[in-house]
Design a protein around this nucleic acid. Structure first.
Lengths: 193, 193
DNA sequence: CCTACCGATCGGTAGG
DNA sequence: CCTACCGATCGGTAGG
């Protein structure tokens, strides 16, 4: 009897894992759940991957690298600080909207990563936050921002706004991504006062 | 042989559950973990409670009712909209700081509630969000706020800011709660521009 | 609150 | 990718 032919790629498995981890959480998703999602047995997944933890690492790595790439891209422009902040906000919203599963898993499930990989994610987040902080500081320097009291806290608050999007954004909802980023940028620069 | 004497109250069990659910998530916490936390066996917990789900419901109910009470208290004042918003922000920050475990469980684990209880939480959140929206609308009416384009979205953005606090607040950290709420209020009203 | 369990489910493996 | 498992752990119960 020949071994059955694979019907799915490793890529399919990672994507399905992202979907389930985002919706039910890492500990709320069993390998059998994941198998069901793809129409095969839980045990069959091990021909594509080494273990459940590897899937979490892979999904979160994908999520994290998108934000990292965005920060690199924005820093590579010679736009002024206000424009760079606008680009960061627009890009961040776009990532969450376009890659909701990976973003949600990155934002909500990273604490369940093995210690070493978890440390890597914490460094990535810190570096990403520093990008915001430096741009704010530059904007304070040129007078376009008025946050000299605490740019580090302002960076946290802006990221709080952005990262909460994965909790209320619904595809096809009343607000499209461009409108959301525009309103967020206006809120960040002017508040509601 | 007499039955052993209880060393813990139901209250102890619920509080310990809040601690573990907040840190490891509902599905990342076993009844044996919870027993360990209290120095007894997992099976012994069932003399205090009916099941694991009941603990989740109870912890989240406590979290949610604090925010509900805050909204009621603030609406009962005859302060102007800006002052009411300030009170909401200060109260919300205080709740998260003072009851971090219940707040984190309420904010992050409610999706694992049984359907009926989950629906109750969604209603509570919606009602709480409406409180923010109405106060913003009133402030727009009196001219103190400038958000006539979308008060509903502004309410979401303000709550995004507030609810993210449970992710970065560390007891005894560099920012005390009063300072955090003050900076948040300034950010909400003026932004960083 | 413990002893002594229960059936179900977990992540994962050997072999084809 | 399936068959046929494995030991460990899960939420929970009966009885004292």
């Amino acid at each position: 009897m020949a071994v059955n032919r694979p019907q799915h790629s490793r890529e399919d498995v990672v994507r399905a894992a992202g979907r389930l981890f985002a919706e039910h959480g890492f500990h709320g998703t069993s390998m059998r759940d994941l198998g069901d999602e793809l129409g095969l047995l839980g045990s069959s997944l091990y021909s594509h991957i080494d273990g459940k933890n590897e899937l979490l690492v892979e999904v979160i790595r994908r999520g994290g690298s998108m934000f990292q790439d965005l920060a690199d891209d924005v820093l590579a422009t010679d736009a002024d600080p206000a424009e760079q902040l606008h680009l960061l906000i627009r890009g961040h919203v776009q990532i969450i909207v376009d890659h909701l599963d990976e973003a949600r898993t990155f934002l909500n499930e990273a604490r369940f990563l093995p210690p070493k990989e978890r440390a890597v994610v914490l460094e990535m987040r810190d570096s990403y936050e520093q990008t915001y902080r430096r741009i704010i500081e530059q904007g304070v320097g040129t007078g376009v921002f008025n946050a000299e009291r605490d740019p580090a806290l302002m960076a946290i608050l802006i990221l709080s706004l952005l990262n909460a999007l994965d909790r209320w954004y619904r595809p096809g909802g009343p607000n499209d991504p461009d409108e959301i980023s525009q309103r967020m940028f206006e809120f960040v620069t002017n508040g509601i006062g």
